[in-house]
């Protein structure tokens, strides 16, 4: 990395390592579309299978990851895309996900793999398939980029996604 500071090379390099880790099938039920990732390292589509024994068994979802050049200091932008958006209290019908590690609790030491694991585990712990209570309002008013939503996490009611005044 002669002449470059680590941040200038790391985003792409780390994303590349991530493709390899996922291609090796280290995370059950999760696979990356490696053709697409090879074309554009900063934009990935990941196929995610609902875990056996959960409400989502047999379903296949697509997750989109977009990386900025500040990755891994900036979190990736992660949304569900495609025809099948999981019905879940933390997933909006436009694919936005209310998950703290995607914004406030993001750490540069997290990886695509750990994000996928958190999302699989979020789906797996679901007891009743339903959309967030404010789904209709949120999807009408939000920005296309979920990172531009000010999410509210860690409250006991489980979900209080946005504060609109």
């Amino acid at each position: 990395m002669a002449g470059l500071s680590p941040s200038e090379v790391c985003g792409i390099e780390k994303a590349t390592k991530g493709v390899n880790v996922l291609s090796e099938g280290a995370t059950p039920g999760v696979s990356v579309d490696s053709d697409l990732a090879e074309q554009n390292l900063l934009h990935w589509i990941i196929n995610m299978h609902g875990a056996p024994g959960t409400l989502y068994e047999g379903e296949v979802f697509q997750l989109q990851f977009k990386f900025s050049n500040k990755y891994p200091f900036d979190s990736p932008e992660v949304t569900f895309v495609g025809n099948n958006i999981p019905i879940h209290p933390h997933v909006y019908s436009n694919g936005h996900i209310c998950l703290s590690i995607l914004t406030d609790d993001w750490s540069p030491a997290l990886s695509v793999q750990s994000v996928c694991l958190s999302i699989v585990s979020m789906l797996s712990s679901c007891k009743e398939k339903q959309r967030p209570p404010d789904n209709a309002f949120y999807v009408k008013t939000c920005n296309k980029n979920p990172k531009k939503t000010k999410w509210w996490y860690h409250d006991d009611s489980g979900l209080k996604p946005t504060k609109k005044t």
């Binding site: 895309v81 495609g82 019905i87 019908s93 436009n94 694919g95 959309r131 999807v139 009408k140």
Partner: peptide
């Protein structure tokens, strides 16, 4: 819920 087509934001 569910009526808004996925991926399309008003």
């Amino acid at each position: 819920e569910g009526e808004t087509p996925p991926g399309s934001i008003s």
